[in-house]
C-alpha cells in the first residue's frame, strides 16, 4: 500500500507545472524515504531530478517500494480538478495498475477521486556524480526567469559568465545583442532577494534558451534559484520545494566548434 497526503494540492500542481514541458511520461519511484523522479528529455539534453521527502508529507505510507509510470499530461488534467487548497491524497495498492488521486475540500463537504492508469516505462536509473562546482550562484528566482525570458528575444542561446565581480548573462542575434550583469548583493537582511556567488574559478558557458525557460516554470515553488557551473559538466539549476525537497535540472552546455 502506498499513500501520500498533502494539505494543499497547489504544491503538487506547481511541481507538475515545473516538469511537464520537459517530460511526457515519468516514473515516480516511491519508497519509505519519499518520492523520486529522474528522467531525461527525449533529446537527452536535459535531466529532471525531483526529490519529495516522506517527512514533508502530511501523511506518508509506503509498505513496499513501487514505481509508478505516469503520463504527465493526464496527471495535469486530474490535478486541474482540484482546488488549490484541497487536500490531495495519492494512493496505490501494491502491484496496482492504477493510481488514485483523492481531493478533499477544506470544509470536508466535497470529496472526489480520480483513478489514472499507470504505464510501464522501463526508465533507466542514472547515477549523478558529485561535482565540486567552480561557481555556485544563488539569486532571486523571479530575476532569473525575467532574464531568461528577456534574453530569449535575442537568440537561441544564453551565455552565462561568472566571475567574482558578478554574473553576466548575454545573448545575440538578428536584432542585436543583450547583456545583463548581476552583482553580488551586500545587503543580507532580505535573504530571498539576495544574490550570492561562491567562485573557485571563473566559468563562461552557453546554454539553450528554450531549456532555461522551461526550468523557470519552477519559479512559483521557490523565491531563490541556485545555478552551479563548471567547465565540461552540465549546469545544475536547483529550486527548493518548501518543506518537501527539491527539483534539480541538469543541462548540457552548447559546444563551440
Amino acid at each position: 500500500m502506498f499513500e501520500a497526503r498533502l494539505d494543499s494540492s497547489v504544491t503538487l500542481k506547481k511541481v507538475l507545472e515545473a516538469i511537464k514541458d520537459l517530460l511526457n511520461d515519468a516514473s515516480f519511484d516511491c519508497s519509505d524515504t519519499g518520492i523520486q523522479l529522474q528522467a531525461m528529455d527525449n533529446s537527452h539534453v536535459s535531466l529532471v531530478s525531483l526529490t519529495l521527502k516522506s517527512d514533508g508529507f502530511d501523511k506518508y505510507r509506503c509498505d513496499r517500494n513501487i514505481t509508478m509510470g505516469m503520463n504527465l499530461a493526464s496527471m495535469v488534467k486530474i490535478l486541474k480538478c482540484a482546488n488549490n487548497d484541497d487536500t490531495v491524497t495519492i494512493k496505490a495498492q501494491d502491484d496496482a495498475d492504477t493510481v488514485t488521486f483523492m481531493f478533499e475540500s477544506k470544509k470536508q463537504d466535497k470529496i472526489s477521486d480520480y483513478a489514472m492508469k499507470l504505464m510501464n516505462l522501463d526508465q533507466e536509473h542514472l547515477g549523478i556524480p558529485d561535482t565540486d562546482f567552480s561557481c555556485v550562484i544563488r539569486m532571486p528566482s523571479i530575476e532569473f526567469a525575467r532574464i531568461c525570458r528577456d534574453l530569449a528575444q535575442f537568440g537561441e542561446s544564453i551565455g552565462i559568465a561568472c566571475t567574482k565581480e558578478g554574473v553576466k548573462f548575454s545573448a545575440s542575434g538578428d536584432i542585436g545583442s543583450a547583456n545583463v550583469k548581476i552583482a553580488q548583493t551586500s545587503n543580507f537582511e532580505k535573504e530571498e532577494e539576495s544574490v550570492t556567488i561562491e567562485m573557485q574559478e571563473p566559468v563562461a558557458l552557453t546554454f539553450a534558451c528554450q531549456y532555461l525557460n522551461s526550468f523557470t516554470k519552477a519559479t512559483p515553488l521557490s523565491p531563490q534559484v541556485q545555478l552551479s557551473m563548471s567547465d565540461n559538466v552540465p549546469l545544475v539549476v536547483e529550486y527548493t520545494v518548501p518543506e518537501l525537497g527539491h527539483i534539480r535540472y541538469y543541462l548540457a552546455p552548447k559546444i563551440e566548434e
Binding site: 539534453v45 542514472l126 559538466v233 552540465p234 541538469y250 548540457a252 552548447k254 559546444i255 566548434e257
Partner: peptide
C-alpha cells in the same frame, strides 16, 4: 558555431 551538447556520458547507468 555552437552545437547543443548531450548529457549521455555525464551520468552512469545504474
Amino acid at each position: 558555431v555552437t552545437t547543443q551538447g548531450r548529457l549521455d556520458g555525464f551520468f552512469t547507468v545504474l
